[in-house]
Design a binder for these strands. Structure first.
Lengths: 184, 184
DNA sequence: GAATTCATGTAACTTGTTACATGATTTA
DNA sequence: TAAATCATGTAACAAGTTACATGAATTC
């Protein structure tokens, strides 16, 4: 149901088509929640039958969705909750691989970590660029809570990637300290 | 398919039943990959029809699975890969909530972060306890690569939770610096 | 003897992914 | 005018969740 709430949240800012929502997604929420376009359309239909959003058709084939009063209520109620089950649904394939990596050679293992560091570095750069943009628009006068909250999530990306890289470096160091490989 | 590889990886250590696998899961892989028992059974059936595992039935109703030669090959091949698409499938409900939290009051927002810190603190304690255990068994002489790899994933948990807490604290500070709430 | 844990699974459902089809509009 | 993007969606499938049912073995 989280996807539904995300769509409600985005639509509260301004009414949009499914396609618009997807592009909005890609530049924001996508960093911590992903969804395919087909999934968005399905969710929109569901939200409409539930009465949380209302659509109007423009220019023959453009369906613009808007949040209903009920939808807004439901959204705010959800936002104020703090569910027990909030630990991020844990699915991290890299950690799975590391967990089983005893079957790899030292070199292969170090290689995995190095490539991971590269990936994280790239991701960090993306976050930093977004932070820069946000900072400029804040200096330019925009200072609503919206943008502050958005910056929180971006800062988290920076913290996260830094932490991942530190960890990976520690692992590489530890590997280098291991006794030389036994011949098999 | 990741679940399949996890099951293969666990079964390579020792043959087990689906139920055994689930308990193994809960104390290890579960921190970075979750799966329901029903899902495990389904995946086991699939792996068996693919010929990657073989089952034998003991004591009327106990089905013990073992990895086949082909299964082992497939597993090792997977392990050596480094897929493009390795960024953890991003689904973090807490970040979604923060992203939309402009609709909350300062107090409510701080509260969310504080509760999050508590949760992370608890999780950190779990990781630290596991690390202690691993360290003792390493001091006790066990020093295979298995346990080193396992410790890598645990260390990551510690890095991660620490980083999350630091971030959340930074957010709380920033909120307290915001101009006092406007009356609505 | 009753309750819990071990062990297997099915069924129904929700969510997520991939591939495809269609037609309008915009840009090169 | 050809290609790319905008915009809608369906179909088929894979993966994940929740609820339930069954019976054996173990523990209180």
């Amino acid at each position: 149901m989280t996807l539904g709430f995300i769509l409600l949240g985005l639509l509260l800012n301004k009414p949009m088509t499914g396609y618009d929502l997807k592009s909005f997604f890609n530049n924001s929420v996508n960093f911590f929640w992903s969804a395919e376009l087909s999934q968005i359309y399905r969710e929109l239909s569901k939200l409409e039958t539930q009465g949380y959003i209302i659509s109007r058709t423009e220019q023959q084939d453009k369906k613009i969705y808007e949040v209903s009063g009920e939808g807004q209520e439901v959204f705010l109620k959800w936002l104020k909750e703090f569910p027990e089950n909030l630990t991020p649904v844990s699915r991290n394939e890299f950690l799975v691989r590391i967990f089983f990596s005893a079957k790899l050679s030292k070199e292969e293992l170090v290689n995995q970590f190095e490539r991971y560091i590269c990936q994280q570095e790239e991701e960090a750069e993306i976050y930093k660029a977004i932070e820069q943009k946000i900072n400029s628009s804040i200096t330019a006068g925009e200072c609503g809570t919206d943008i502050i909250c958005r910056r929180f999530t971006v800062r988290r990306g920076i913290y996260f990637t830094q932490s991942e890289m530190q960890w990976a470096k520690e692992c590489i160091e530890e590997i280098s300290k291991l006794q030389p490989e036994k011949e098999t």
